[in-house]
């Protein structure tokens, strides 16, 4: 009996193995695509970041760490000595702050929205998802320009505020930090709502009643039951907002008016008017390293305590 059973197990295992070998090929197109168009350019950029900049763009194939040095220092015009120059660091810091604010506000706005959607009757939910994705139907550039028309001095918002008499001359909103964060919020809010919705949709709302029954107030039910169980969605939403917001290019360019740079614009500048490809590559890699470090701590802190059952 025992022998027959192990034989059956062997067969089952062999079949499973065969199945897995067969299915492995299904991932090949994606693996190939990512290798050629994702990892390949990254390796190239990494190499570029250690080369010398050619005067009209491109690189000279000579090893140097200048790009990383000039990220933090500036050569004195007269004697060529290196002096600490925090300009880039400030832009990085500002970008992190903007991305953090965007993520935080998106979470605060997105959670009630997702909760609302998840508590609709099942037949209505897909309509709400559709409504959330409506902004994706038009181009980000167009939508960002539309925001510009709303918040500029002669725009809708100022016009309305003057008309109802709250203010008597326009408040400058466009080309400010506020405008950038507003644009980022608008652009990335759906990326927060959708993962939150998908985790809240699976949430068993009878647990809320169980919480109330066991003397938990509304606030405690939220913090002790709903949020911990929705944690995977919260993590996913925060990552989907934070990472693209950190590297945002179009939004700060248009709504910041080129005066309030974010990392994305800075890097683009090196490859464009700056004609310093190694510096741009180095900046991109520093950004990537920073994101990876931030991610590491974020995920460790949020998923370390309790992993979701099911």
């Amino acid at each position: 009996m025992a022998k027959a059973l192990s034989k059956a197990e062997q067969v089952a295992r062999a079949m499973e193995g065969q199945q897995m070998t067969r299915n492995r090929w299904l991932s090949m197109p994606a693996v190939l695509f990512i290798t050629v168009f994702g990892i390949g350019p990254l390796i190239l950029m990494f190499i570029y970041s250690f080369l010398v900049a050619a005067p009209y763009g491109g690189v000279v194939w000579k090893f140097t760490t200048d790009a990383y040095v000039y990220f933090l220092f500036q050569a004195d015009i007269f004697d060529g000595t290196l002096q600490f120059a925090p300009d880039f660091l400030i832009i990085y810091f500002r970008s992190f702050v903007f991305a953090l604010i965007t993520t935080g506000v998106c979470l605060v706005l997105g959670f009630p929205t997702a909760y609302f959607m998840a508590t609709r009757p099942p037949s209505q939910r897909n309509w709400w998802v559709l409504l959330i994705t409506i902004p994706f139907w038009s181009n980000l550039l167009v939508r960002t320009l539309a925001i510009m028309f709303i918040i500029r001095d002669q725009g809708l918002l100022n016009g309305f505020l003057i008309w109802i008499g709250v203010i008597d001359k326009p408040i400058t909103l466009l080309y400010t930090d506020f405008a950038i964060v507003l644009g980022l919020l608008y652009s990335y809010l759906p990326f927060m709502v959708l993962p939150l919705y998908s985790s809240l949709e699976k949430f068993d709302f009878r647990l809320v009643e169980a919480g109330f029954d066991l003397y938990a107030t509304r606030r405690r039910v939220l913090w002790r039951i709903i949020i911990p169980i929705a944690r995977p969605g919260i993590i996913a939403g925060c990552l989907l907002v934070f990472i693209p917001a950190l590297g945002a290019y179009v939004t700060p360019l248009i709504l910041g008016g080129g005066k309030h740079l974010m990392i994305g614009d800075l890097i683009a500048q090196q490859f464009g008017s700056g004609r310093n490809w190694p510096l741009g590559s180095a900046q991109a890699f520093i950004l990537m390293a920073a994101v990876l470090v931030a991610l590491y701590f974020y995920v460790r802190n949020t998923s370390g305590k309790v992993t979701h059952g099911h």
Partner: peptide
């Protein structure tokens, strides 16, 4: 949450992110 009355639910409605002991202690904790 203000009634000294507790319920055993048809679906049990146990908290999936807590251990058995944390589930049992939840009411007292609250």
């Amino acid at each position: 949450f203000k009634r000294p009355v507790n319920t055993v639910f048809q679906s049990y409605a146990l908290f999936p992110h807590m251990t058995v002991a944390q589930n049992i202690g939840f009411g007292l904790e609250m």
